[in-house]
C-alpha cells in the first residue's frame, strides 16, 4: 500500500463526509477501502443496536458466507469482545486448537479465512461498534496497518456521528437508528429483488448499489422505492 493510495482514500472519505451523505453507502465505501488499503480480504462494520446486539451496517462484499460470519457475532465472538472491552481483539490462527469461539472459528475457516481482527468504533468514552477484518493467511497485522485500520475505524465513527457533539443523547440514538434502519431497508429490498428477478442476495445488493450510484441517490432511498414498487430495477439493468 502506497502513501498516495492512503492519502487518496482519506481524501475520498473526507469528501463523502463533507456533503450530506448516506450512512449506509458510506459504511460500504469504508469497508471496500479497508480491503484495498489494509491488504485484508474482507471487512465489515458492525454497530450495537438497542438490544445490545451487533448488526452489520457495511461489508466489503455481500457474500452470504461473510454476512453469516457477522451474524454469528451478534452476542459473542471477537467483535462483541472488542465492543465490550473497547480494545482490539485478534485471532491470528483460526485453524489452531483450542479456539475461544469454536463455532465462529470453524465457520470462518470454512469461508476461507485464517485470521480475524476487531477494532473498536470509539469516540471518547463511547464505544458504538467494531470494525471487523478478515485475512486468508494466518498471523497478526503489521503494527503500521493496525494504526491505519484504527484511523479508518475512527473515520467510520466520526462519519456516523457526523462530527456532532454526542453529549446530546438524541443525536447518538438518531444516528445509530438511521444506520441500523437503513440496513433493514436494504435487507427487505434485497428480498424483494431476489424474488422478483430471481437473483441471489449478493446480486440484489449490487443492483441496488449500482442503481443508487448511477442515479446519484441514497441507497436507502432506492431500497424504499424498490420495496413500495415505485422503481423497477429489472428494466434498468444493462
Amino acid at each position: 500500500m502506497s502513501v498516495e493510495n492512503l492519502a487518496e482514500t482519506f481524501v475520498e472519505l473526507a469528501d463523502t463526509l463533507v456533503a450530506e451523505f448516506d450512512p449506509v453507502e458510506f459504511m460500504h465505501l469504508l469497508a471496500d477501502r479497508c480491503v484495498d488499503t489494509l491488504a485484508v480480504d474482507a471487512a465489515g462494520i458492525l454497530l450495537v443496536d438497542h438490544h445490545g446486539e451487533l448488526q452489520v451496517v457495511g461489508a466489503s462484499t455481500e457474500r452470504t458466507r461473510l454476512l453469516e460470519l457477522f451474524e454469528l457475532q451478534h452476542r459473542r465472538g471477537p467483535c462483541m469482545e472488542c465492543y465490550v472491552t473497547g480494545a482490539q481483539v485478534s485471532l491470528t490462527d483460526l485453524g489452531s486448537v483450542p479456539q475461544r469461539w469454536p463455532d465462529f472459528s470453524a465457520m470462518a475457516v470454512d469461508a476461507g479465512f485464517a485470521a480475524v481482527h476487531a477494532l473498536p468504533l470509539r469516540l471518547r468514552s463511547e464505544t458504538i461498534g467494531a470494525l471487523n477484518l478478515f485475512t486468508a493467511r494466518p498471523g497478526a497485522l503489521d503494527p503500521a496497518i493496525i494504526r491505519i485500520a484504527q484511523a479508518m475505524a475512527d473515520v467510520a465513527t466520526i462519519g456516523l456521528l457526523q462530527a456532532r457533539v454526542i453529549s446530546h443523547r438524541e443525536l447518538l440514538a438518531e444516528q445509530l437508528q438511521t444506520a441500523l434502519q437503513g440496513r433493514v431497508l436494504i435487507e427487505q429490498a434485497k428480498g424483494v429483488l431476489a424474488e422478483r428477478l430471481q437473483v441471489d442476495m449478493g446480486q440484489a445488493f449490487e443492483m441496488l448499489r449500482h442503481y443508487a450510484r448511477s442515479h446519484n441517490q441514497y441507497i436507502s432511498v432506492i431500497a424504499e422505492a424498490v420495496i413500495d414498487g415505485t422503481i423497477d430495477l429489472s428494466t434498468s439493468q444493462g
Binding site: L67, E71, E187, G191, A194, E195, I227
Partner: peptide, 23 residues
Amino acid sequence: VPMSRGEIHQATGMVSVQLGVGV
C-alpha cells in the same frame, strides 16, 4: 430473539412479492 436478523428482513421482502402484499 429480536426480529432484527438479516434473514427475517430478506424473507419479508421475498414474501411480499410471493403474496403480492406490502412488507
